[in-house]
Design a protein around this nucleic acid. Sequence first.
DNA 1: TATTGTTATACTCTATAACTATA
DNA 2: TATAGTTATAGAGTATAACAATA
Lengths: 139, 139
Amino acid sequence: MTVSSGPTAIDVEDALYTFVDSYDRAYEAAAANQQLSVAQICVLIRLDQRRGMSSLATELGCDASNITQIVARLESRGLVIRQPDPADGRARLIARTPEGDAVSTRFDSAFDFAREAKNRLSTEERDQLIVLLRKALGG
Amino acid sequence: MTVSSGPTAIDVEDALYTFVDSYDRAYEAAAANQQLSVAQICVLIRLDQRRGMSSLATELGCDASNITQIVARLESRGLVIRQPDPADGRARLIARTPEGDAVSTRFDSAFDFAREAKNRLSTEERDQLIVLLRKALGG
DNA sequence: TATTGTTATACTCTATAACTATA
DNA sequence: TATAGTTATAGAGTATAACAATA
């Protein structure tokens, strides 16, 4: 009876935790790199097309009043603007300003974690990883 | 010239984002299930052995004053206690109460995301996933 | 009536700075 | 002097409730 020295020496759950934690820390660091919080970046990068607040709240899984505040801070920094929705007098369309576009682009450059992870794998390994992650997620 | 219909039809970066996002949401939901924030759970589950505040701050990558407040809230809910450190008059040792142990255990039950992910994979697939995640992380 | 968004409020997370007590 | 922890403070994230305007 011997103890395995292969990959099973550590648990999948540990490996997942380590990876997720690293991902999250890198994401937060990249946001901080642009002097933005994760919440602010999450809104900003979802504005490739202008859109309403409620769809943002739904997609991000938070209350609409939360989006109001985050957008207000982004607007006060000149990264987004609120426009009236010609099709619905109640709604506002949020759009990135040119400066908001620039910050969003710089964030994409700064967040290199996923790109680097990808680059460390061969084409076959990438396919394997996608299959395994999808299977692990179920549904 | 045909378009691939295999796993490469989606990107590794997308798969990683989806997985991490699902993991994070499940973690937060499990914490909320115990009426605790993620920050509070992060402290609570690291108290299997009693320990000082500064080591918690270092491990969690935050300021000591932050730990002071989180511990104060956990203490006010009866989940941890602050004890004097017999070996260092400046330090306090934080320990879980029996109720804190119970909440920590219930959190472990509630957070079934990683366990479920593991259970969807065969032994060989688990080994593959560990290898790929470690390689993707580099170093 | 239902929906979109805002405002007021309250609690939590978080860091910085200043502080006390001890090493 | 350096370290462990606290307190005060301020900005940000978050939800709930009440609200105005519009559909």
